[in-house]
């Protein structure tokens, strides 16, 4: 049946702090997300102009994946992310523009981000990942489903590694947690361990 897979590393972006395996990589007192994520972009010398066209959820996902994958050579990596609010932050923006009495026209640049899996597309483009993509919605972080799904992808040779996690942006609040599941790694791949790492920024 299932082989024992391992978690290689994990990263967080939460409350002005970006960390990898619990070690801070960038910290800021800035409470406004757009200013905070831009300063992180500059701090890491990201040099990816597309970043500035993205919505908040994709900006969060892009920086989180950059930190997680900075020394990664494997390209056959699946993505299985989840959140609570889907793309509602951008959905509200789109809804506002089409309800504008003076100028009720949608912007294609906003509308395209009204899907949560767009952030998977942005990660895939950035890191050249031609692999499995799935976006799930749960009302809270759900380690059980991600655990089963990652095991299934690896056991069926859908990819060499899987990036799983939680990518939430809603009404200015953000919470990103990503981890890499593979054949080898320092952390156990178990529901208990995933929940522990989620709570250990």
């Amino acid at each position: 049946m299932n082989k024992e897979y391992r978690i290689q590393r994990y990263g967080h972006i939460r409350q002005g702090r970006i960390s990898l395996n619990g070690i801070p990589r960038f910290e800021s007192n800035e409470t406004d997300f757009s200013i905070f994520i831009k300063s992180a972009y500059k701090n890491f010398d990201t040099q990816y102009p597309k970043f500035f066209k993205m919505d908040s959820l994709s900006k969060l996902a892009l920086i989180a994946s950059d930190v997680l994958l900075e020394n990664e050579n494997e390209k056959n990596i699946a993505l299985a992310l989840s959140n609570r609010a889907a793309s509602l932050d951008t959905d509200r923006r789109h809804q506002k523009t089409i309800q504008d009495i003076e100028n009720p026209f949608a912007s294609p640049a906003v509308f395209v981000y009204t899907l949560p899996n767009i952030c998977l597309g942005e990660i895939s483009i950035r890191h050249r990942l031609f692999s499995e993509n799935s976006f799930f919605i749960f009302d809270r972080f759900n380690a059980d489903s991600l655990f089963e799904y990652a095991n299934s992808l690896l056991a069926n040779q859908k990819s060499e590694k899987v990036i799983c996690g939680w990518m939430e942006f809603d009404q200015g609040k953000y919470d990103a947690f990503l981890y890499v599941v593979a054949k080898n790694g320092i952390f156990a791949h178990s529901i208990e361990e995933i929940n522990r790492l989620y709570l250990t920024p």
Binding site: G121, S124, H127, R128, E132, N133
Partner: peptide, 11 residues
Amino acid sequence: EASCNDANHIS
């Protein structure tokens, strides 16, 4: 079954 990204463009 399989699901693969284009890694090309979002729209």
